[in-house]
Simulated assay, not measured.
Amino acid sequence: MVFVSEAYTTVPATFSTPLQEKVYQVLQELTMDFQRVETEEVITMEDCQQINERLEMDMVKTLFLCNRQKTNFYLFVTCGDKPFKSKEFSQALDIARVSFASAEQMDTMLGTKIGAATIFSTLLPEAAKVQLILDKDVCDQEYYGCSDGTTTGYLKLKTEDVLRKFLPYVKRQPRVIEV
């Protein structure tokens, strides 16, 4: 059982990473309502179940992928309960098979560690080469639950705000696929 705090609607008193601080600055700047929880370290989707219950929503699964040559990178956001099938993902994008990017690449390009991949990494200039891919099912959800860039902080946002406020702010047009 993972510790999950009560839900807060205020920014954390302290920040663990530069990305986490940037996330909350941007949420305030864009006047995006949020609820957040603090947790013990959470890595797996199974660990997220208690977060889902506390925030009354379903966490998304955010995967950092690359091609074999490690020249093309993808941040794929899908439903937390959906199994990832590399073949279906690759077919939807009409690309060669992909694999998971390394922990080092994740740190360098996304400013996060394993378990903390988040759409908010698009705030970082290092993520400019990363293609943002959204599962259509995620776009159809009322709420968007994700990491705040750490493995100990999780957010509940309105999906509409993510799509209509945040993505235009970072000047990113995601590719939406059905898998």
Rank of each mutant, 00 (worst) to 15 (best):
V11F: 09
L75I: 10
Y8G: 12
D81R: 10
E6Q: 14
I95L: 04
L134T: 01
M59I: 08
L30D: 12
Y154T: 00
K158F: 14
F84T: 02
L157V: 05
F100D: 04
V77E: 05
M32L: 10
F73A: 08
T17C: 05
L155R: 00
Y74G: 00
N67H: 11
S5R: 01
T39A: 00
V23I: 13
V77F: 08
G145E: 01
V42K: 09
I114D: 05
E41L: 13
N52A: 01
L55I: 00
A128T: 09
T17Q: 12
L27C: 12
P18L: 08
T10A: 04
L27K: 03
E56F: 04
P12S: 15
Y8C: 11
V37D: 05
E46L: 11
L157Y: 02
P18R: 15
Q91Y: 04
Q20N: 14
K61S: 05
G80L: 09
V176C: 03
K129Y: 08
A92Q: 13
M1H: 04
I43Q: 03
L155D: 03
I114T: 01
V130W: 06
K87V: 15
F89S: 01
K156F: 05
D135Q: 13
L65T: 05
S90C: 07
Y144N: 11
F34P: 02
L93M: 03
A116G: 11
A103I: 03
V37H: 05
I95P: 02
V26S: 04
G149P: 03
Q131A: 14
A13T: 14
I119W: 08
V23M: 07
E178K: 10
E178Q: 14
S16E: 12
T9S: 12
E88N: 11
N52R: 12
R68I: 09
S121E: 02
M57C: 02
S16K: 15
A96C: 03
A128Q: 02
A13H: 11
M45D: 06
P83D: 12
F15L: 14
T62D: 01
F76P: 15
K158M: 09
I51G: 06
P12M: 15
R54H: 10
Q49C: 11
E88G: 10
T112C: 01
M59H: 07
A101E: 02
V37L: 04
K156W: 06
Q28L: 10
V176A: 02
V4S: 06
L163V: 14
T9G: 12
F166W: 13
V170C: 07
M59E: 04
E21I: 02
Q49P: 08
L75R: 03
V130I: 08
F166H: 07
V2A: 12
K70N: 10
P125K: 06
Q173V: 06
L167T: 03
Q69S: 08
V26A: 03
E6K: 09
E29F: 05
L75C: 10
M109Y: 02
V42W: 07
L75T: 09
L110G: 00
A92D: 15
V98T: 08
Q49S: 08
F100S: 12
F34D: 03
C146E: 12
L63Q: 15
G111D: 14
V176P: 00
L65S: 06
G80R: 04
V26G: 04
E21R: 01
D161T: 02
S86R: 11
Q69L: 13
I114F: 08
F15A: 05
T159D: 09
L123K: 02
L132G: 05
